[in-house]
Design a protein around this nucleic acid. Sequence first.
RNA 1: GGUCCGGUAGCUCAGUUGGAUAGAGCAGCAGCCUUCUAAGCUGCGGGUCGCGCGUUCGAAUCGCGCCCGGAUCACCA
Length: 595
Amino acid sequence: MKNPSTLVAEATVSYIKNAFNHDLDAQSLTLQSTRKDFDGDITLVVFPLTRITRKSPTETANMIGEALKANLPEVDGFNVIQGFLNIHFTDYFWWEQIQYLQTLKDFGIIPQRNGQQPILVEFSSPNTNKPLHLGHIRNNLLGASVSRILSANGQKVIKVNLVNDRGIHICKSMLAWQKWGNGETPETSGMKGDHLVGKYYVEFDKHYKAEVAAITEHGIKLEEAEKKAPIMLEVREMLLKWEAGDREIRQLWSKMNGWVYKGFESTYQKMGIEFDKIYYESNTYLTGKTIVAEGLENGILAQKEDGSVWIDLTNDGLDEKLLLRSDGTSVYMTQDLGTADLRYGEFHPQSMIYVVGNEQNYHFDVLKIALARLNKPWAATIRHLSYGMVELPDGKMKSREGTVVDADDLMDQMYDTARQMTEELGKADDMTEPEASELYRKVSLAALKYFILKVDPKKNMLFNPADSIDFNGNTGPFIQYTFARIKSIMRKIDTNPADIKLSPVEIGLKERQVVRLVMQFPQIVIEAGKEMSPALIANYCFELAKEFNQFYHDFSILHENIAEKKAFRIVLAWQTSEILRNGMSLLGIEMPDRM
RNA sequence: GGUCCGGUAGCUCAGUUGGAUAGAGCAGCAGCCUUCUAAGCUGCGGGUCGCGCGUUCGAAUCGCGCCCGGAUCACCA
């Protein structure tokens, strides 16, 4: 079934061909949805065409309008305002669209195509020295949502997580626990494992800062003091022991990481995040070295006198970049080269997407070029989904300064707010306790997820802990509420909306607005996939919900006297709810049947 | 300093390949529940789209130059 813009575009092209013997590219036409304050469904901007017609914009628009009306049975009228041709489609056309939708399942969602290479999406990628915070939430929600959106575009998606489980920062919490932990465990302390480990990371920093301060008082420079602080020397030694495979250290490492994983697992579960495959840096960090060694052999890379290995990217407008330290240990870039190569070998994906903050844009520029130089042609398929920081009113979150918004705390707070608000409104009065708590969970998560995902990924966004996330207006709960209202109507009828027989009806202005929006959904899904932007889905869902609410307010569905109209409205409402459910599920948001 | 990203209403954000009078939400004010759920709907006020020049029928959108904010340019990750 053709959509209105395609119909208009094709008819316009053939008219221009017939009347002016001019070949026009359908793509070059500017077609847009007619603005609300004008009468019509789709608008053709005719200014660019006046060069061909050699007539005024108004004349041109009128000519095309007449031609469309004559040649397209779907078009029953038009008006021209200053070079804008507003085309009006018949009620029957829109009615037919809805009738057609009735026969479809999951309109706008493209089923997975067979025989395709998968797309790999890496996201989350936490460090095991502290619990997840709001920044991680944005990362996780984006990664999960983009994965769903790509799936909805017919792709096979593999979600991977790369856990940064080793390194000096991990040793810091280990050392602090060793020194001051008194054998404290999640069980004895009653603390979630990741929070407990995070506590010792902060503890380390506290002692470290004190030591540095003490040293600088003796007139020693800060830079030197930072290197010489005894606790820092100790932690470096611990890292060496770890790399040497020291039994005791490895055991401590496994134990504390185990606590963290258990903690992460519960946070992920609350958030509704899951992965197809989890990589651990401790298992992959060595493989990058092999690639670097090969590059050295082939003369692609250069070794300096001290033994460090570099790649020269000055020809690409970048700098020289270190790939191996002089002591032979690997850096972040080294292991990323290795992990990428491993993954490519394992899945042969058509594309590898990395959901990583924009602070690492440079890193990914280097990664792509470095891999290409090292004869990995698939480097070109790497895409960095770079997203902006989540900022607090007084600037960036800093874990060491305790200004982070903790993921678990935030979700708990949201849950409490949802409960409080629901109770105030009396919405859960006739629900059982499990039903009610399930509702609080869905509503609070919707508020949080929507709040984050509605913002264009590449932009920084602000979170103000003082005024908590809204449940009214442009929010997740607003859309859920619209859905729940429709569900309530559906409970009152005894037929399955899919089975309702429709006959042609007159379609009112408000209904028409809803129908037009409904029909746009597939295009939005495609666009969101191309742009890797859940925000497009979020904004669309809001618009649809708002439009439906206006219709709902102005007209009755179940009390409509004319049977054909009533049937049409029921089906339209049902379609709206299906699209809201499918759209929101692309954001990882669940819809409650009642609220 | 080099590179990249951003600057739209008091606040948080939309604004498609350049198109009509720049839109929502929140906050403020004023209304709407004997009728399908008021977490809703309606109305009002609120703007030098950072600044300037240019490109053209037309610029928040494209180009150039400046101003402001952020990120990054580590033998950190």
